[in-house]
């Protein structure tokens, strides 16, 4: 009798458990469905329609995509994004990695100070940073042209005002802002290197550069792969620095996906081509991410601890 009620009670409990435990997963799922999945499906659908003069939406197949792909600005954007990625990502890794190495392995009392100071650009509002750099680059009263002429670099105009140099000038700002992030990722990696391996390598005679290049660099590859993955996604969503410093100009020379989408969707109000562009950026991001995850085993978290 007692055993029977116990079993019943246990059954009731597990029944109520089964229904309420799903509440743990519900809020995250709801947020995802409403604010991520639904908007993506909507934009994918919208990209196949085109508006008419009387405000009706007409199915257009891939017409919006062909229009975008035949727009010369699109190919300027692609070129700029490739430049952005292949310059920004390795330079940030190199400077961030070197800083991390020297800070972690050769400083003690000042370690926290250096870690914090080099990270400050990351926590400084990007709109503030952009305006400061506009001032730095400014002709006549900016400090870049004033000080760089002492090392033989003469700037007649602002580098962001020249179509040939604008994108590089913006890349410099981006590198400056985000190198602290790469540094911190490598610091996490270096601080957690197993000391037995380092000691063994040192006993084998590996020191200085050889220890760094042959032992530490390979052991930091999880951090490097995460930075590559985050760097590619970060490149594709570049917006504030470009929007605030050049607006994609001069003459669209520094246009990136973010500013292009912004103009098509919100300045021109051309939702159809804005939607097609959004889908293109999304597909590029997913393909590049999945390729890295599949080929390199790259991970999405900074700690390099989770599965992709």
């Amino acid at each position: 009798m007692r055993a029977g009620t116990a079993v019943q009670a246990a059954k009731r409990r597990s029944a109520s458990k089964a229904s309420t435990v799903y509440l743990f997963a519900l809020p995250a799922t709801l947020l995802f469905v409403v604010f991520i999945a639904y908007p993506i499906l909507w934009v994918a659908g919208e990209s196949l329609y085109t508006g008419t003069a009387d405000g009706r939406a007409v199915f257009a197949g891939f017409a919006n995509y062909t229009t975008i792909l035949s727009d010369p600005t699109f190919w300027i954007v692609v070129r700029n994004m490739v430049l952005w990625g292949i310059i920004t990502i390795p330079v940030q890794m190199l400077i961030g990695g070197l800083l991390a190495y020297f800070i972690e392995r050769h400083t003690h009392a000042l370690r926290g100070f250096f870690r914090t100071m080099f990270f400050l650009p990351v926590v400084t509002s990007v709109s503030v940073i952009s305006l400061v750099w506009v001032q730095i680059y400014a002709p006549y009263y900016g400090i870049a042209q004033e000080y760089l002429k002492h090392v033989g670099i003469v700037m007649m105009t602002s580098p962001i005002g020249d179509p040939k140099t604008a994108i590089y000038a913006l890349i410099v700002v981006n590198i400056w802002q985000w190198t602290g992030f790469s540094m911190l990722m490598y610091i996490a990696g270096i601080a957690n290197l197993p000391s037995e391996v380092l000691d063994a390598a040192r006993i084998d005679g590996a020191r200085g550069w050889r220890l760094g290049v042959h032992v530490i660099v390979p052991m930091l590859s999880p951090a490097t792969k995460s930075l590559l993955l985050l760097g590619v996604i970060g490149t594709l969503q570049t917006f504030p620095i470009v929007h605030l410093m050049t607006g994609g100009g001069p003459n669209r020379a520094s246009e990136v996906f973010g500013t292009f989408i912004f103009k098509q969707s919100f300045v021109l109000g051309d939702t159809a081509s804005g939607a097609a562009l959004s889908v293109i950026v999304l597909v590029i991001a997913l393909v590049l991410s999945l390729v890295q995850i599949a080929l390199l085993g790259a991970r999405l978290s900074p700690a390099g601890k989770d599965e992709p």
């Binding site: 995802f32 908007p39 909507w42 934009v43 594709l236 919100f266 939607a275 959004s278």
Partner: peptide, 21 residues
């Protein structure tokens, strides 16, 4: 795994649909 795909979505491609929503 489904929710993780969010991490591969650049914000630039989300602003238009989110603005409409």
């Amino acid at each position: 795994t489904t929710l993780l795909t969010t991490l591969m979505v650049p914000l630039a491609s989300m602003v238009l649909p989110l603005a409409i929503l």
